[in-house]
Structures are given as structure tokens and as C-alpha cells.
Computed example of a mutant assay.
Amino acid sequence: MAAGRGVTEDELYRIMYGAIAFEMLHAGWAVGVFDHLGRHPGATTAQVAEALGLQRYPCDVLVTGLRGLELVLGDDSGLSNSPLVEQCFVQGEDGRHLPFVHDIVNPGISDFIGAVRAGANVGLRHFPGDGTSLYDRLEHDPDKLKVLHDHLRATSDATLADLVRTGVLADSRHLLDIGGGTGTNAIALAKHYPDLRITLLDLDNVVAEAADNIARHGLADRVDVHACDVFADPLPTGADTALLAHMLPIWSPEADRKLLRNVCSALPDNGKVLLFDPLQNDQRDGPDYAILFPAYYLAIASGHGTFYSWSTYEEWMREAGFTRFQRFPGLAVAHGLHAGWKQ
């Protein structure tokens, strides 16, 4: 959308009926329309219905919706996927995000008004169990936990190559992967940089799985795991670079600022910190993903956290003791890399 012009009537209605638009997208992927048209471009609606074992009427409703959303192109004489659908959902693996939105985001976001009024993640009621965060609750629901992990891995797979392309890790020798989870980023970075040593930091129950993953990839000699509470415990020293990927948005500003002070204390002079996340612009009106997705953190995940702006990250880094900064904008999925050096 052009800045400042407001929305058109069509755009307004697309927002109003956005839940239906998502279900069209999800169905196009889940029942196989996109996959079939990827293999058989030019198929008619009747041929799609027959191939997928669907009745003509529901298939027509679905295909008509997909055409209206410009996810599928053409008419009844011949259909094809739009180039972006072909790239993302047929050749690529962006479909891994759709069950996360369907099974986790959408049930919980129905309580968004309540979350706004209460200032709490009241949408968590849709996920039985103990604990005050989605992450606690899903430890007892392996199916939904897999859906969440698939979404997180898909995000890392789609974005990590852009981090590498910035070249900011080219001179790093020892990296702290803070909140590194089960090792997705550490494993990929270790494979790309054969001389890089990595220490992955996370909680006890997480690093045990990370160690197994790292060993399966034959990287245990270069990638260590270290169990700690990164917000409360001193961080290990000896590394020249610290990576916080998809870590800061989960937590409150107070917790994040404390963590950055902890990181700065652990790094040597000329050490650098890398903040890798979706980032809001400094006007805080875009990009769409970075300004819409925080509703998930409020209503469901934890009741706090957001995607912060570039200027907010720089302010926090400066406050923590970093003195030189560089921005790497325009990366995949609204991501940016904000680097800070300690001097």
C-alpha cells in the first residue's frame, strides 16, 4: 500500500474477510490444488476436482476464491499457479507455516480483544495444560509442538542464507548462539563456516536435544552446548561474536535490555553482537508482517514481546555498551540484521 493514502474498498473487504482468504490459501495447499497445478499447468477446474477426488461444487468454490486472490491464474479453460505460489508452496516449503497459523494462531487470536483489554495472553485458554506461556503448554501436546517447531525451522531455512550473505560472520572465530534452541541455526552456520566454533546456549531440557542433533550432523567437535539461563546466569567468555536470532521479540524490553548488557559483558573489545529478527521500520508502520504478527505474542504466546524497530535495537545496544552499529535491511520474511560492536 502507498504510504498515507488509506485503504481502497477492495483492500478493506480483503481485511474484513481475511480469515476466509487464509482458509482458501490453506485449503489450496492442503488438499493439493497447488501441487496438482504445479504438475499439470493448464488443467481445468473439472480436471482438478477429478484428480483430487473432490465434488465439482466445493472445488469450484475453492478455485474461484483462489483465482480472486490471484493465487491461481487463468479461467475455466486452463489454470496455473501464480509464480509466487509456485515458488513458495510447490517448489519451496512455505506450506510448513500454514498449520501453525491454522492450529495455533487462529484459535488463540480469536481472543485478541480480550488480550488487548486485559494486557495478557488470554488466548492461551485454547491450549490445555500448565504454565503461563504457549511454550510451556505445548510441552504437553507433541502434535502442536511439532507444528510450532516446523514453523520455526521453516523461518530459519528461509532467512539464514540471507544472514550469511551479509558477510558479517566472515571474520568471526567463536560464536555464542544465544537461545539457540535445538541447533537449527548452529548446524547450518557450522556447515557454512568450517573454521567457526559455536557454543549454543539454552535451558537444560533444550540443549540435550540440541546436542543430539549436532552429533547426528557430525559437528560435536566444533559445536558445543552450554546449559544456562541467559537472563540470569553469567555467559561464557572467549567468543568474539554473539548471535541472538528470533530471541528478543519473545520477551519484554526490560528482559531484553538486561540480556544485552549480559552479552556485552561476555564479549571482548571489538566483539560484536548480531540481532537477527523481523524488524519494524523506524516509523513503526511496516512492513506488514512485522506489525501484524506481534498480536500473536500478546494474545497467545506470552502476553508480552513484539517485533521491535531498528532504532529501538540500536538504543538498547548503545545502552548495553556497544558503540558502533551497522544495519543490513531487506532480508527475507521482513527480516533485518542489526550488528553492534564493542569498542
Rank of each mutant, 00 (worst) to 15 (best):
A242M: 05
L145D: 06
A190W: 08
V116P: 00
S302M: 13
L152R: 02
R222G: 08
D141N: 15
D111E: 14
D229G: 06
G92M: 07
E70Q: 15
R261S: 15
P268S: 08
R327E: 06
S82E: 07
I198T: 08
V147S: 01
A161D: 14
D177H: 10
V90K: 00
D75K: 08
D269P: 06
L331C: 09
I20L: 14
R117A: 13
G68M: 11
Y17L: 14
R261I: 04
G303R: 07
R14S: 15
N281D: 15
G340P: 09
V207C: 02
A51I: 03
G340Q: 01
W316P: 05
H174P: 01
P268Q: 04
L134G: 04
P99Y: 05
A51H: 08
D288W: 12
M1S: 11
G6V: 02
P83T: 05
R153A: 02
L71H: 05
A210S: 12
T184I: 11
E319A: 08
A245Y: 01
T312V: 04
S172D: 03
R165W: 07
L124T: 01
L298G: 10
T132R: 10
K144C: 07
L175Q: 05
T199A: 06
Y289H: 10
Q91A: 13
I300K: 06
A334P: 08
L37Q: 02
T44G: 10
W29I: 05
L66W: 03
A334H: 11
P287Y: 10
A255Q: 15
Y193S: 06
H226R: 14
Q343A: 13
L138N: 09
V168A: 15
V263A: 03
I104G: 00
V48H: 00
S302H: 09
R165V: 03
R125F: 04
I300N: 09
D60T: 14
T199Q: 07
V31H: 01
E9W: 10
T237F: 00
L69K: 06
L267Q: 08
H226S: 12
R153S: 10
R14Y: 08
V206A: 08
G123N: 04
D111V: 03
W316I: 05
Y135Q: 05
T312F: 02
I15Q: 11
V31C: 09
E70A: 14
D195G: 11
F293R: 06
N185D: 15
A115P: 04
S172P: 02
D212R: 15
Y57D: 14
A51L: 01
M317L: 14
I187P: 05
G181C: 12
L292A: 13
M24R: 02
H140P: 02
L219C: 09
G114K: 11
A255C: 02
Y17H: 15
Q47A: 15
H151E: 00
G119E: 09
D130S: 14
K258P: 00
T323R: 13
V72H: 00
D157Y: 01
M24I: 02
S77K: 10
T306D: 15
T306S: 12
V116S: 09
N121K: 13
P249Y: 11
